[in-house]
Design a protein around this nucleic acid. Sequence first.
DNA 1: GTCTATAATTCGATAGAC
DNA 2: GTCTATCGAATTATAGAC
Lengths: 192, 192
Amino acid sequence: MKVKTKKEVFFEESLKLINEKGFKGTTLRDIAQKLNFEAPNVYNYIDSKQSLLESYISEITKEFHGAIDNVMASSYSPEEKIRLVIAKHVQMAVNKPYQLALLENDWRHLKEPGLGKYIDARKSYMNKVISIIEDGIELGEFRAVNVEILAFTLLSSLRWLFRIIADEESEINPIELEKQVVDFIFMGIGKE
Amino acid sequence: MKVKTKKEVFFEESLKLINEKGFKGTTLRDIAQKLNFEAPNVYNYIDSKQSLLESYISEITKEFHGAIDNVMASSYSPEEKIRLVIAKHVQMAVNKPYQLALLENDWRHLKEPGLGKYIDARKSYMNKVISIIEDGIELGEFRAVNVEILAFTLLSSLRWLFRIIADEESEINPIELEKQVVDFIFMGIGKE
DNA sequence: GTCTATAATTCGATAGAC
DNA sequence: GTCTATCGAATTATAGAC
């Protein structure tokens, strides 16, 4: 078991607090109190409250975009690509639920130019998903649907997976979670 | 066309601002500026900033719970009940996108005892959906699945429909939106 | 790295005149 | 209903001693 550095503990505990009270609702005093020191000491770890938000968000968005770019550039079929995208979201929800929560809850508190970049990147991500779905429809792997609405609904069900982990008291089996989500997205709830 | 009262304009404009900047990120001065008067005048319309949040949230949660209780008490089949639940979410997303956004983004800023009540009500809502799905599986209308994960994923895709309306520049046809969402949830994206 | 002290600003809210 | 003036508290952040 690796020993956590003070810096790692700082970022982990801050993350949990922000998850409970929101970025704007979490004060540097709150963070300091949780770590049992006085407020000005947070500046031993960060330059500003804003930079704290930015570091959490940039880390996780880079990971998502790196993953989907690799998927796009692969020779897998559209159906397999969608499976890989789902797998990535499940994996992230299981491994970094609080960071995902922060991303979804508090991205709006980014300041320019970071905010504009984030919004653009988010659109770009959805466009890549749309592109995969379009290919899949063309190849007859998917039903013909309104791709914008579908991509949006699909991503919505993926983006909020972290709540299952963050909210649920019970343990979740990641493999079972992925299977259930894949089945839902490909087959829906209907009998046939 | 009904003429809007000043009070209606106040609540509408406040809602849009909160949607952009979040509840904690929106100051009473921001609201006053948008309405072209000075900050203390907001107290002509509300008792406190907190009561503003509470009124938005209680209105919309009552509507959802009233709807699902009527559905539960009806003699429709589970499949038809799920269709009605989806229809309600689509209808709300189309008619009250900003209020739904506030609900999802800022419910955590409720204070006790309202916060606890909201969390309980949210769990209760999901339990009702789970109950419908369980009935449907028993009757052979739905595939046998992990109902908790399914209900969660299903509700996630419904709860974020408002973003299609709030974000999208293009007009959305509510009837088409409902059809696409129903098809996605019952059949998924797969060909068969 | 930790603290005390405090600056500079902003916030929700109130008082009271018109 | 609208304003000016302002209070009291809280916030991010800095200065500087230990």
